[in-house]
């Protein structure tokens, strides 16, 4: 699997896939996509990178332990629900704000925070599994 061509294009492929996954994540509310799919795409990107170049570069590249990323995502999703406390509405009620940035209206919401949390959990957990299995491949 670790051919020169594969090794050379893998970083670019991975970056593209991660970018695409974020795109899928963000458009998920109105078009097909969302945290689960985005997370899976990013996780496969990391898995591909791991197969091509070994696990160590992947771990270096994502800097955090994948499980830590997943844990942070879970925390983020949970907290997205807690945000509704400040608006005196029940847990997990969606909240929306529309700040204007450079003249463009950007809809931000607690739901988006939640979806990003889902994304991080899926990326973290699945890539952690994949990386752990790939690591075992070499010992």
């Amino acid at each position: 699997m670790r051919t020169v061509i594969f090794r050379s294009i893998a970083p670019y492929l991975t970056s593209l896939m991660v970018l695409f996954s974020i795109f899928v994540l963000l458009r998920g509310h109105n078009e097909p996509g969302g945290g689960f799919i985005g997370g899976l795409i990013a996780a496969s990107a990391l898995a591909i990178y791991g197969i091509a170049c070994g696990v160590a570069p992947v771990r270096r590249a994502i800097y955090f332990h994948p499980m830590a990323i997943a844990a942070f995502g879970l925390f983020m999703s949970g907290m997205a629900g807690v945000l509704s406390v400040f608006a005196s509405v029940p847990y997990m009620s969606g909240l929306w704000i529309y700040p204007h940035l450079f003249g463009v209206e950007i809809p931000l919401s607690s739901v988006l925070v939640f979806d990003v949390g889902v994304y991080l959990v899926v990326v973290g957990a699945i890539s952690s599994i994949a990386l752990a299995l790939e690591e075992r491949d070499r010992d």
């Binding site: 969302g34 689960f36 899976l40 599994i129």
Partner: peptide
């Protein structure tokens, strides 16, 4: 189903390991 797919995948991975 969407969530079920992801969860069944994680369980599949767990069973595999």
């Amino acid at each position: 189903i969407l969530t079920a797919i992801v969860i069944s995948f994680s369980f599949f991975a767990f069973l595999l390991v």
